[in-house]
Design a protein around this nucleic acid. Structure first.
Length: 188
DNA sequence: CATGGGATTGACT
DNA sequence: GTCAATCCCATGC
């Protein structure tokens, strides 16, 4: 994946990340669900402007924005659009590929379908934490690879974002059509 | 300095 | 279906 991939409108990046592969220290999975967030809409953390918390979001594209959600979970985002714009793609679900035994151990879950079917689940499965905030997605330790094989022409379904109260009507959620590894079914 | 609200999950009814 | 856990940080006094 090149830096220029992320240096584009966040909706394009979110859609195009479906089918790509995230990996971290031997564990990996195909992205089957994403959501876009942008500083122009109130559901985005960047909506409040540049603060210590949102520094990464407003930084250059192709970096990881990792933050704590509900005091418990770490959520992984890919910063998009040029430096100075607060935009990122939330990675919400993966289809596990490599390191499944380690993911099962970390999650204490056997069923592969439930290993990475949520934004907090996949970070736990891959061993991603707040210490990865601001790391380069091109250099690692977290890296994202281009679509390969049958994923090259994956069908992408569009839906409303999950779990937010503001700007909840925007169709900014992108899913691999028919995937059994989503955090929730697509509402048609 | 005190307060309150989450881009969630898992356990329980 | 309901609900608590738990902590970072933005906001307001």
């Amino acid at each position: 994946m090149k830096r220029s991939f992320y240096d584009r409108p966040v909706l394009d990046v979110a859609r195009d990340l479906v089918g790509c592969v995230v990996s971290h220290e031997g564990c990996s999975g195909v992205i089957v669900e994403t959501e876009a967030y942008h500083d122009s809409e109130p559901a985005s953390h960047a909506f409040v402007g540049l603060t210590p918390r949102t520094k990464t979001l407003f930084g250059p594209p192709g970096y990881a924005y990792v933050y704590r959600s509900y005091g418990i979970h770490a959520l992984l985002n890919a910063v998009s659009e040029p430096e100075g714009v607060g935009a990122a793609v939330l990675i919400r679900a993966l289809e596990p590929v490599e390191g499944i035994a380690l993911m099962q151990a970390r999650r204490r879950v056997e069923r592969v379908q439930g290993l990475c079917s949520g934004p907090g689940k996949l970070t736990q499965a891959l061993g991603i934490g707040l210490e990865h905030n601001g790391t380069d997605l091109l250099r690692g330790p977290i890296v994202i690879e281009d679509r390969a094989g049958a994923w090259r022409d994956v069908d992408v379904s569009v839906d409303r974002r999950i779990g937010i109260t503001k700007a909840a009507d925007l169709p900014w959620r992108f899913c691999a059509a028919g995937s059994r590894f989503l955090s929730r079914r697509v509402v048609s």
